[in-house]
Amino acid sequence: MLPGVNQFLYLHVASSDEEEAATEYKSRIADSTDDELYIDIPIVEGTGRFKRLFLGDELSAYFVSEDGVKSYFNSHVLGFKEDVVKLVRIRKPDPESITKVQRRNFLRVASELEIAICMSSNIRFIGMTDDVGGGGISFLVDARWAIKQGTELDCWLLVPYRNGSIDHSCFKAEVVRVKPLETGKCHIMAKFASISDSERQKIIRYCFERQLDFRKK
């Protein structure tokens, strides 16, 4: 399903500046053609600050249906249109490229990312994920760490984006399964016990970009 006129879009603009890349903007679809969407100048909700876009800017966007499904897609700025107000022309997504994410069924992708972990006993160590998602992660760590089902971990996940910028997502995770491996490692599966919307959005954005990379191969 494609977004329609008067529907709101939530945008991230590709940038080498971490703070800028993490900022979410809101816009409204004012009009559309077969190939383009015409949107209002994006703003930062709560501040009213406008975001000036330029020809060629890469965008990651999502819109929300009435039943709470978030639909993600990538686009870019094609130009501008002078109407009663200035509108931004962006590429309309191919319906096949839109990724839908249910509120209770977050997208997960296979990925090796570095994760720093702190246990309640102040033990700190590094692991490597094998998949990540908006609802939780799984990762490999040395078996000597006494991680058990129900253990709560403070985590810092390194999150690289397609534009070359790198971010970190911080959260508390609860271990739901521990599987010892013959390699001397343990495979840990964990769900997010406490994570802010902004930190979760960093991970969802990464998963979305990663899935698009898989589709292109």
Rank of each mutant, 00 (worst) to 15 (best):
Y25W: 12
K26A: 14
S27M: 05
R28W: 01
A30Y: 01
D31R: 13
S32M: 15
T33R: 04
D34M: 02
D35Y: 13
E36F: 07
Y38D: 01
D40S: 10
I41W: 01
I41N: 01
E45H: 00
T47K: 08
G48K: 06
R49N: 11
R49K: 12
F54T: 14
G56W: 03
D57G: 07
D57W: 07
S60C: 11
Y62W: 04
V64D: 06
V64N: 11
S65T: 15
S65Y: 00
E66Q: 13
D67N: 14
G68M: 04
G68P: 05
V69E: 13
V69M: 13
K70M: 08
K70Y: 06
K70Q: 13
K70V: 01
S71V: 05
S71N: 13
F73L: 08
N74T: 14
N74W: 02
S75I: 12
V77Y: 09
L78Y: 09
G79Y: 11
F80E: 04
E82A: 14
D83Y: 10
V85Q: 09
K86E: 14
V88W: 02
R89Y: 03
P93R: 04
P93H: 07
E96Y: 12
V101C: 06
Q102R: 10
Q102H: 11
Q102A: 09
Q102T: 00
Q102M: 05
N105G: 12
F106N: 13
F106A: 12
F106C: 04
